[in-house]
Simulated scan of single mutants.
Amino acid sequence: MLASGLSFVGVTGIVRYLGTDLPAAQSAFLRFAFGVVFLLPSLLPLIGRGFAPGAMRLFTLRGVVHTAAVVAWFYAMARIPVAEVTAIGYLNPVLVTLGAALFFGEKLALRRIMAVVVAILGALIVLRPGVREVTDGHMAQVAAAFFFAGSYLFAKRLSQMESAGTVVAMMSLFVTLGLLPFAIWVWVPVSPAQLGWLALVAAFATSGHYCMTRAFTAAPLTVTQPVTFLQLVWATLLGALAFGEAVDPFVLLGGAVIIAAVSYITWREASLKRRAITPAVGETKV
């Protein structure tokens, strides 16, 4: 999880460095196009094999939602501090919890509701509406959090139909296709240096997802989830050292509040699962 966090901070740092020289849709398209190139050896056999009934429709819907999320994220990343993008992004798991209750009928117990309320308070601490200006970059990142949550909900349904590798590969392909017309619409000349940086973004993103998957395999979410808060620490340091962004204690506080709420939900759900599978006293006796 440490390596995953550092990889994703590398992604945000490079996109922040590239700034607004390239339109958000074009930058996002090039990043995902490089990702498809990396995944091409595994994509071709998948397409030839075919998919479960109904999976292609879900792949398409997820591609639309994830495309919107990526454009909003790239737009925000070029306009607001790295730490603020990271802190607001912590809302994703909370929104997924709400979405699972609304669309999948999962029970929304009081503890989940309280954790969601706490996470929203954390987001308000980061944004501080009425105390400072909430820019279009902030609103874009909030929108990105909602769209990413929607994408994860589609991924959850698809994970019951296809393998994890198939879900990731098809997401990259459909997002690239979804971004293509927007990229053509706003296309500007790209320098070799910019292409190189965006290829590195794709490599860091691939590394981040791979390391996260390995972490989830090696340890329970109750162990890995709190470590994600360190990503905010790395992002704050990067913003301060590389881009001269002031360290905002309210962003750190708000991020800590959000991740505390997410960690509580994760810990509580894991505890309930263990309780459900642990046999009662005497059940194992012959």
Rank of each mutant, 00 (worst) to 15 (best):
L6W: 02
R16C: 04
P23W: 09
S27F: 04
F29K: 12
L30D: 01
L30Q: 06
L46Y: 01
L46W: 01
I47Y: 02
G48Q: 12
G50V: 02
G50S: 04
T60N: 12
L61F: 11
L61M: 14
V65P: 00
A68Q: 06
A68F: 09
V71P: 01
W73K: 02
Y75E: 11
I88L: 11
G89N: 08
Y90C: 08
P93Q: 08
V94R: 03
V94M: 12
V96F: 04
L98P: 01
L98I: 12
L102R: 07
F103N: 03
L108W: 05
L108Q: 01
R111L: 11
V116R: 04
I120N: 03
P129C: 09
G130P: 12
E133P: 09
G137I: 10
G137V: 10
A144M: 11
A145M: 10
A149R: 06
G150K: 11
M161G: 04
M161H: 05
M161D: 04
A164C: 05
A169L: 07
M171H: 08
L173T: 05
T176H: 06
L177P: 06
L179H: 09
L180Q: 10
L180M: 14
W187R: 13
V188I: 12
V188H: 14
S191M: 06
G196K: 05
W197T: 02
V201C: 02
A202Q: 09
A203W: 11
T213Q: 15
R214C: 10
T217R: 15
P226L: 09
V227K: 05
L232Y: 00
A235Y: 00
V251E: 05
A260P: 00
V262T: 07
R268T: 08
L272R: 12
R274H: 08
R275L: 15
P279W: 00
A280F: 11
T284I: 15
